[in-house]
Design a protein around this nucleic acid. Sequence first.
DNA 1: ACCTGAACACCGTTCAAGT
DNA 2: ACCTGAACACCGTTCAAGT
Lengths: 201, 201
Amino acid sequence: MHPRRYHHGDLRAALLERAEQVLREKGPAALSLRELARDLEVSHAAPSRHFKDKQALLDALALAGFERLDTALTTGAAPGSSFADRLGALVRGYVGFATANPQLLDLMYAVKHDPQATEALTAAAQRGLLRAAELVTEGQRTGEVRPGPAERLCLPALAAVHGFAGLAAGGLLPPEEAAAGLDDVVAFVLRGCAPDRTTGT
Amino acid sequence: MHPRRYHHGDLRAALLERAEQVLREKGPAALSLRELARDLEVSHAAPSRHFKDKQALLDALALAGFERLDTALTTGAAPGSSFADRLGALVRGYVGFATANPQLLDLMYAVKHDPQATEALTAAAQRGLLRAAELVTEGQRTGEVRPGPAERLCLPALAAVHGFAGLAAGGLLPPEEAAAGLDDVVAFVLRGCAPDRTTGT
DNA sequence: ACCTGAACACCGTTCAAGT
DNA sequence: ACCTGAACACCGTTCAAGT
């Protein structure tokens, strides 16, 4: 009746894959360890061999999400391109990931009730800040970005991108505003990063 | 044994109040209708008279959160103050609310699986955008903000504030960065809104 | 109108036991 | 090492019945 039993392969990976699918299609409230086990034709206690509890599975899902987000942020920029082009690629990468994986993004940035225990997760979250800092530092080197401590710029810049992505993914923007908004955010961030005109030329 | 039975007062309001307390102290996963009923010394079926299901209670919680956020956004600005001062007040109001109610903020902006059914909620969410638009329009009137369609500016500006508040509330920023970041965000948004220097004076 | 009590189908987690 | 099966304490939701 069933095509095959599953318990030979990589159950951990299969659980994560199926969990992400359920998260995407039915939301986090519909995620149940027992249902995952049923889907994979495994006893309901089997998942506990790979994830000590439900939160551990959610954390693993979020961590995998951060890794995919990082690759989305670091691809798409031509090697020798301008700061504006690199920023545009980063914004498109972030927003593209967010709209393609809205529930996962929610999970990734969910407030942790447990303060520590998730340090790998907060470290992964801060990698986005690191990517923004790299971009800003490079732009400062070429003179396309105002001088000063990089954190003073990359934090507000990333906040704008992160905030826009969150609003767009949450469906809080009218569709046409969401589309046009992306370019507006890029332009806004460019102005925020631009050198002072008075000292220039 | 029990101090008193509860079933006389406003059970709906009592449920919301207790639910928010549990959300704040123990996170959303610990929120259970049955436990709320137990806390309020009421049968476990009583809440269904006031909220058709658990999601309805969460939605009501989120809606109340948006109302409190709106008052936080609209207070704190002196009547005749500058655009910079008004913007600073709005940012402090937003970030103050976010850090004081991190779990509630998460709930308010959680991705809705149900696409409609929550239109009151998305309308409430868009009121923040409306407040930003008012601020921008007023700034354009006084010449402190660059001209053009207000949405082109208020969406990126609010995205920056919203994104920063989310990062700060989620504990993803080192504490000293979170404190200094607020002023950086204000300065960044001011630059993004400022009129072009070339046409000025 | 508002609440109770029982019932149903479902959870997460644990643990002895199997292979 | 990895999984099963039973058990425990807990859910959300529904519904007849009470006042």
